[in-house]
Nucleic acid binder design. Structure first.
Lengths: 253, 253
DNA sequence: ATGCCTTTGTGAACGCGTGCACAAAGATGG
DNA sequence: CCATCTTTGTGCACGCGTTCACAAAGGCAT
């Protein structure tokens, strides 16, 4: 039920809105950068600008965590880093398994952003026997037959699925049965999971299609503007705005 | 200003809500699967189930495109595939450049989901001279010095950034200056772009942090429930719920 | 042709998220 | 100790998105 975007639509996480939770990592990243530059305090305006959000939104977000600011001064960077880290559960270590060590799985295994924030790649799992034992990012790939024991041995609760779409649901079921209750799904599949399991989806193809929609809309606007203004627009040459040549994605006013 | 999630917050795309646009690729995928099985028609209930959404939401989404269903019967699969494809701009070919051919960039270049839906990897670009000329996914990597000419020669309007965070803004600026107006950003950076340029962000680290938040919340709930019920919960052993041992992410009722 | 049955399309209500605007709070200088 | 100035925290209003519930519409059997 839980899809990647607009996550956990009904249940509010007991006080902290989902939209706020989704922004906390953004703030944390900006704060960490400030911390590394030894900046002691930061105002909501500055931090909001660094995180790319509205300052009122940022203040409201922080208000859900508590009153951690000082009026007239701003927020203590170190303190806020700690509070957000704790709220996100990053003060503890999260072992993660990656299932499906293809190009993407290998890329994720090598991705530095994991280790930097409390996430540790506990195991790499693949169904291909010829992959078993191969070192990827310094970790030996294990066979999917041992999935359950690997999960149990490492007390893993977060799984990343980077298998082909056809295998995703099956892998998901096994992960969940083995005790994993949070899944990051890169496979182009709608996973069905029991109540209590969180799924977030990252779908590269969908992201591109959304961009294409807006791109087409912009092209159509440019086209209609160029017709009236006589301005030549590169993208307008592309043509093919549908079979009837009508402007797509534009409802009749 | 445009962040990856909740995209284009103010401007509605002249008739089609952004939330609907984000779901169209989901419907399209489900419909394509039905089409391959030669299913002629589908009801909103069936399709919604396949796409993992509410049927009322699906019907309202389709209502923004027009009245393409037949009451008492459902939707014609082939016709709907065509209409959605056209609406998303997938009837035309979108040349895409990928900048930053590391693990992730290479994974994306090899990703089959691109070509299957009107997207064509027109060029791979990297700043490392030793990468220049190397074949990745059958495409020769080109040097970033030639970025502008590559964009122009291929009439590229969509760029994918998979560089390290430090290089992302610079690459972004050059892409935009060269005429790219839609960017898919995998770098952990808040990109600032001029008006009219769309940016979608995919941040693996952020997705994991959101999962960790919910995971921690579930662990805290399990913990408090196990205290009263005497149920032993695996995750409860993990401990370390913050320095005061209080339950995090739970506002006092 | 007529009545029934299924399914769409949508009006209306509700809830969440956002942003404005301001009062409260606290630091700082005299 | 008081005045001033900065910045937080939040009440409020607004708009978008979701969901319900039902009337309209069309197929189908008799």
């Amino acid at each position: 039920m839980a899809t990647g975007r607009n996550h956990r639509p009904a249940t509010r996480s007991r006080g902290i809105p989902e939209a706020t939770v989704a922004r906390l990592p953004l703030y944390l990243r900006a704060l960490t950068a400030l911390s590394e530059r030894s900046v002691p305090t930061v105002s909501s305006e500055e931090l909001a600008s660094a995180a790319g959000v509205n300052s009122a939104k940022l203040r409201k977000d922080f208000s859900y965590l508590g009153s951690y600011g000082t009026r007239g001064v701003g927020y203590d960077v170190e303190y806020l880093v700690y509070q957000i880290s704790r709220e996100l559960g990053l003060t503890q270590d999260w072992p993660v398994v990656i299932v499906g060590i293809g190009n993407l799985g290998a890329a994720l295994a090598n991705y530095g952003g994991f280790a930097s924030r409390g996430f540790r790649v506990a195991a790499l799992i693949d169904a291909d026997p010829s992959m078993t034992g191969r070192q990827v990012a310094g970790i030996a790939v294990q066979h999917v037959d041992d999935l359950e024991s690997i999960i149990a041995a490492n007390d893993v609760s977060i799984g990343v699925i980077t298998t082909p779409g056809g295998a995703a649901q099956q892998v998901c079921d096994r992960l969940v049965a083995a005790g994993v209750s949070s899944i990051l799904n890169f496979a182009p599949t709608v996973l069905s999971v029991p109540e209590g399991v969180d799924v977030r989806k990252v779908d590269l193809s969908i992201e591109l299609q959304i961009l294409a929609f807006h791109e087409q809309r912009k092209a159509a606007e440019d086209l209609s503007r160029s017709v009236s203004d006589g301005v030549r627009v590169s993208r307008a040459r592309r043509g093919d705005q549908g079979p009837e040549g009508e402007i797509p994605a534009v409802m009749p006013a």
